[in-house]
Amino acid sequence: MNALSIKQLKKTYNNGFEALKGVDLEVKNGDFFALLGPNGAGKSTLIGIISSLVTKSSGKVTICGHDLDKNTAQAKNCIGLVPQEVNFNQFETVKNVVFYQAGFYGIPKQQALQRTEHCLRQMDLWEKRNSISRRLSGGMKRRLMIARAMVHAPRLLILDEPTAGVDIEIRRTMWQMMQEVNRQGTTIILTTHYLEEAESLCRNIAIIDDGRIIRASAMDTLLSSIHTEHFLLDLARPLTSVPLVDGYQIEQVSSRTLHVAVPKNQGLNQLFAGLSAQGVTVSSLKNKSNRLEQLFIDLVQ
C-alpha cells in the first residue's frame, strides 16, 4: 500500500491562478521521498491540499489507503506536517505546544504526556520543555515543529523545508533525526532547496514545475541520467596556457584553477593522464555543483 496516492489533482485559486494542473504522484510506504521544484512551482499548494490547509479544485488524495474526502479523520490521523514557517502559539510553553496537539488528535492525557516527552527527547528539546516557545532559537523552533508533528505517531511525515535558514551543524543533526524517524518506519516527504540534502537523504524523487510533475523516479535512476559532470581542479602550479586533452572541455577559471566538463562515458583517468603528460599537476578536485542541482536546473529551465 502507498503512503500517499494522488490522482489528477488540480487547484485554481480565486484570482484565477492555476497552481496545480493535474498532479499524479505515488509515495511508497517507508520511503524517504524528495519533492523538489522552483519557487511558485506548486509544492506548497500540493502539501497544503494533502494536509487539509488548502481546498482542492478537483482530483483525489489517498493517504495510507484512506480517501481524504470520504475518510477524512482516518486520513488526517496518518499525517504529520512540519510547515515551512513557524506556526505554533509563540506564547505557549514548548511542552504545551506538543501536548495540546496530542489533545487535538484525541490522545488521552497520560498517553499524551508520554508521547510529548518521547518526541521532545527525540528532538533533543526535553530540557527546554518549560521555556516559552518564542524564546527558542531558529533551529529549536524547527525541531519543536517536528516533535509536534510526530506526537500522534503519524505514518506519513511531510517536512516542508525543515532546514531552511539553520546552520550546517544543526542541519546535519536534523538529518540524523529525520533518518532515525524514517528508520523507525515513518514515510517522509521532504521539500528542500538544499539539493545536497535531498540527494543524500532521499531514495525517490519527484520534480514539480509549473503545476505539473515533470519527473518522478528513484534518486539513483535520476542521477544516472546525468551525461556530463563538471569538476573544478586545483593545480599545484600556476598555468601558462590552457592544456588540451581529447574528449574533455577544459576552461581556465584562474591561474591555478581549471573547469572541466567530463562526459560520463569518459571517466577521469584519461583526463589525469593527459594533464600529467603536459606537466600539469592536480592537487585536488571537487564537483562544480551538486549533481542533483545540475540536473534540477536542466529540467526546470
Binding site: 490547509l53 482516518q74 506556526n87 505554533f88 488528535y105
Partner: peptide, 17 residues
C-alpha cells in the same frame, strides 16, 4: 490571534470536526 499566528493550522491538520 489563532489565525494571525497561523496556529489555526494545528487544528486544521488534525482530525477535529
Amino acid at each position: 490571534s489563532t489565525k494571525f499566528q497561523r496556529h489555526i493550522e494545528e487544528l486544521l491538520v488534525a482530525p477535529v470536526p
